[in-house]
């Protein structure tokens, strides 16, 4: 039923910032939709577009890549590379007529619990509007 749709979002969260931010949001008991399955990565720069494509094609309703704010990456430049890779994947999907809106890149620092809450809430709302990822139904991928 449409009204009961809880999106499944795969979140690739950088260990040093966004994962800690998510943790903080949790321990601070901030209210968030239970939509995210987090995958902890050492840096957003580790997120090869192929990983994001995997999540998308396996039927994630949304995929979030989150890392430290520009300038704050633990490895200095990882998130700058991540941003370029992400831009490429988005462009590839757009050019192929795929729903690139189901991908999101956000910066969340370790101290930004409320920011994490906001990102998740907002993204979940957006995906709710888009509905379930139709890819889930395909059998001949």
């Amino acid at each position: 039923m449409k009204g009961e749709f809880t999106p499944k979002i795969v979140g690739f969260l950088c260990n040093w910032c966004s994962y800690a931010g998510a943790d903080l949001a949790g321990t601070s008991k901030l209210k968030m939709p239970p939509s995210v399955s987090s995958i902890r990565v050492m840096c957003s720069g580790r997120v090869d577009p192929v990983l994001v494509a995997t999540a998308f094609l396996r039927g994630a309703d949304g995929v979030l890549v989150a890392g430290c704010h520009p300038g704050d990456c633990h490895y200095e430049k990882g998130n700058y590379y991540a941003r370029r890779r992400f831009a490429i994947l988005k462009k590839v999907m757009e050019t192929l007529g795929l729903e690139s809106e189901r991908l999101r890149l956000s910066w969340v620092s370790a101290s930004e619990g409320p920011r994490f809450q906001e990102v998740i809430t907002e993204f979940t709302e957006k995906i709710k509007k888009l509905g379930p990822n139709p890819v889930k139904e395909k059998t001949s991928l």
Binding site: T54, L57, V92, M93, K136, T139, L141
Partner: peptide, 21 residues
């Protein structure tokens, strides 16, 4: 999840992967 799947799977994935790489 899908009620069936192509074997081998991942054909579209392979091409999207190659396009991004």
């Amino acid at each position: 999840k899908r009620g069936g799947i192509r074997v081998p799977p991942n054909t579209v994935f392979y091409h999207i992967g190659r396009l991004t790489h």
